[in-house]
Design a protein around this nucleic acid. Structure first.
Lengths: 199, 199
DNA sequence: TATTGTCAATACGGCTGCGTATGGTGCTAC
DNA sequence: GTAGCACCATACGCAGCCGTATTGACAATA
């Protein structure tokens, strides 16, 4: 009497072995849910239904996994967030779109927010430095196009990005204010009015 | 031949035993330097020049130490930051003073910034919730006094506080921009102009 | 001097995570 | 069908931290 094939689909496409990609995806899931420190080999292996014997075939160390996963994230993030905005010519409109669009789809922000809590980690730090640098630069360019002086554009970009980062922490980590959808939209509206000059 | 008395003063007032207060102070130091997870019993004991045999006489657990230390911090913080501002009658002036004064003396911010990275921790979370709530409320009151509508005041307070929180992370954790003193003052000036209405 | 109270050292067991070593299983190719 | 590759299990040693138990050192006090 042979065992029936496993019919319960678990997270991965079930049937069969894992690839490096599966491990990276699992790492990002865990990262979003429980932070960087939760991305540990043995827990992740348990979660994927294997043992760490498998892991060390794909990666030389935990660090290597983290690095690979974050680089995957960085690439994906750039493609989905900023490339779509390149097409918008009017800078004010571009900023508005960024603010509003950013306020949707949480998953990306949850992950970003977890990474903010691990800025001291040697693997996380350079990735976040690059990503933040790019984003702030994007903002600055837009303000420049709105006739801000170089210094004002830089300061306003810093302010806008700080507001984004801070709001993430307050909303997602400290669940200080569980806002309704209407409240949230009103807040985003207020931010747009305050940080983007009229015409 | 007896040993000479130890002449090297190490952190605590040297000569002799520790009190609960010494442990709490040491915990806050470690917290500011290396984050919540670094507040561990054995490392802290080593740092204080004793063994954990001592620690468990003063505290029942690591959690208890953390709790005590954070409550001490919370109390101290309130006294030094907000009470001095209560005296300023003009709300715009009060806000300006808060912004500018906050931009000095780093130690407090370093600690706050580390706590921001541990908002998921069950001991940290309630403390930070209280502190942030109070601060946002303070801001809101000031904006109310500036004739903001209830909703606008709330949103502006959220925005201002988010900007503070985000800037802390970007400056202290990600050392994205090592700004000069002049640049920094200019940034604070820009923030004041942007977030506090004229007259 | 004897006693008590306060702080500290030592030693232990338990848990969790990292990384290594080695062997096993199933698919694929020839 | 057998050789080889890709993936995985098992078992091990090591390190760090938690918390407990027991004993010791030293001071103040009686």
């Amino acid at each position: 009497m042979t065992m029936p094939p496993n019919l319960i689909a678990d997270s991965r496409t079930d049937r069969a072995r894992l690839s490096s990609t599966d491990w990276e995806a699992g790492a990002l899931d865990l990262l979003a849910e429980q932070g960087v420190s939760a991305v540990a080999v043995e827990p992740l292996a348990r979660r994927l239904g294997v043992t760490k014997g498998s892991f060390y075939w794909h990666f030389p160390s935990r660090e290597a996994l983290l690095k690979a996963a974050l680089e995957r994230w960085e690439k994906l993030d750039e493609e989905t967030v900023f490339e779509p905005l390149e097409g918008i010519a009017d800078p004010a409109e571009r900023l508005r779109e960024l603010f509003v669009r950013t306020s949707k789809e949480m998953r990306s922000h949850v992950l970003y927010s977890e990474l903010l809590k691990a800025l001291d980690h040697p693997v996380v730090q350079p990735v976040m430095a690059r990503v933040s640098q790019r984003r702030i630069h994007f903002l600055m360019q837009a303000y420049r196009a709105l006739n801000f002086s170089r210094k004002d554009a830089m300061n306003r970009a810093r302010l806008a990005y700080s507001a984004y980062v801070g709001f993430l922490q307050l909303m997602l980590q400290l669940k200080l204010t569980r806002m309704s959808v209407e409240e949230f939209d009103a807040y985003v509206g207020h931010v747009v009015e305050t940080l983007i000059p009229i015409r």
